[in-house]
Amino acid sequence: MYDVMSGVRVIEVAEHTFVPAAGMVLADWGADVVKVERIQGGDASRHLQLPGTDGLLNPFFEAANRGKRSIALDLTQEAGREQLYRLIASADVFLTNLRSDARKKMGIEPDDLLKRNPTLIYARGTGYGLHGAMADDGGFDYPSSWCRSGAGYMQALVDEMPPKQPASIGDLTGGVTLAGAVAAALFRRERTGKGAIVDNALYMVGTYLMSQPLLATGIGMPTIPNHAQMDAMLALANNYRTRDGRWIALCLLVDKWWPDFVRHLERPDLLDDPRFADAAGRYANRRALIEALNEIFATRDYADWCQRLATLEGVWAPVQSPAEVLRDEQALVNGFVSQVDVENGDPYLAGVSPAQFDEQTIGTLRAGPAFAQHTDEVLRESGLGDSQLAALHEAGAIK
């Protein structure tokens, strides 16, 4: 991990992926992140297990919780809340995505915590924001950030169901942007000594990710929905199937790249074809060009095309599987994928949070904590002795 947040203490009362991902990013940057989990079962994402992964690490939990310490407090009990308040008194950041009724019941609203620590950065994630009819509604990534924002609509083919996300795009984007907002608030605190309340919402993440089509619609431009491969607006910004059924993605948006691309295809006749002589012609005759490129890409296997296009002047990409990404030399040499060490288990590889400091890769990371693994350790750091811990365990206020 990095050291840019070294010395920063983060207390997290959050579940699932959105706000816990912010805690994970801060941990990647060097913060000490203490995850406070409910007494009964902990974070709900611990129990969202993919079929066939019983007994293995849980991606739903790991993806947002590596590098943290876990304690379990009963925040419905006064004794449990008092332990949280002890931690808040010396904390720098508090993270939560609990709904307003739960925050009020547990005494973790901004006023509750800022009066105990006026310099605290209180960071909150919601589904739909703080105002309006949906302010108290719960949210999840796909419906809240993907579907409501227009992303699902724009990806659906006519008369087809909108596609599901391939991963938690709204949650993870929301987490890293919330971490960035926390960093900005900490910077202001360094200058002014002033704490802050920082908010993010899944719906807001979605509207940000959809900035271009929302802007286009707002100024009266027609929206361009998703399309079948043969109906692409630009033949050179399209995907093409190889002989062995894999896909190559082209994004040749610069006109001067056309001759070099044709040379790599070994089809000089395309340069002489008057239909494709310039960008206007390639647009007007895009369907004919797509048909020609479909035939060309179908003559060679995926590996062959990857090798041939490696020297292409323009931008392209192989459509890789997750397994291929984990062995991709470009991802590995840059540290975009890194090893995560597992206590009493085998390490695994994972994508890292998207920032690097001092031209260094993040290095080896630490897996997510076991449930309540650090309760006694963290509370001893706050000043409790063995007899006090024993009494709190007996009362069921901690686990």
Rank of each mutant, 00 (worst) to 15 (best):
D346N: 15
L265A: 07
A303G: 15
G41V: 11
A72I: 02
D272Y: 14
F61P: 00
A31Q: 02
G174N: 02
W305T: 00
Y122L: 05
W305V: 00
E324Y: 04
T126N: 08
Q320M: 11
A232K: 08
V319L: 13
G174D: 08
R263M: 09
A167F: 12
A317D: 14
A235D: 02
A21V: 05
Q360Y: 05
K194S: 06
G127H: 01
A298T: 11
W316E: 00
T173Y: 09
S382F: 15
M230V: 13
A303F: 00
S353K: 04
L326G: 05
L312H: 01
Y153I: 06
E295V: 10
E381C: 10
R308E: 12
Y85R: 11
R188G: 00
R366Y: 10
D260P: 11
R286C: 01
C251T: 10
A279S: 14
T76L: 05
L114T: 08
S70P: 03
D328Q: 07
L379A: 11
D278V: 08
L271D: 14
R103K: 14
R99A: 11
D386C: 12
P259H: 07
D112E: 09
M161N: 11
A183C: 13
H47D: 13
D346R: 15
R191Y: 02
L236A: 04
V337E: 04
P322H: 08
L130W: 03
H374W: 15
A179W: 00
S149P: 02
E394N: 14
G7E: 08
A298R: 04
G368I: 06
V176L: 12
E329W: 13
L87V: 12
F61Q: 01
M161V: 15
G368F: 03
A228L: 12
K194A: 09
L172S: 01
S321G: 07
L120P: 04
D386R: 15
I362R: 04
V33R: 01
N117I: 08
S70Y: 12
G180P: 04
L87R: 07
D301K: 14
H131Q: 14
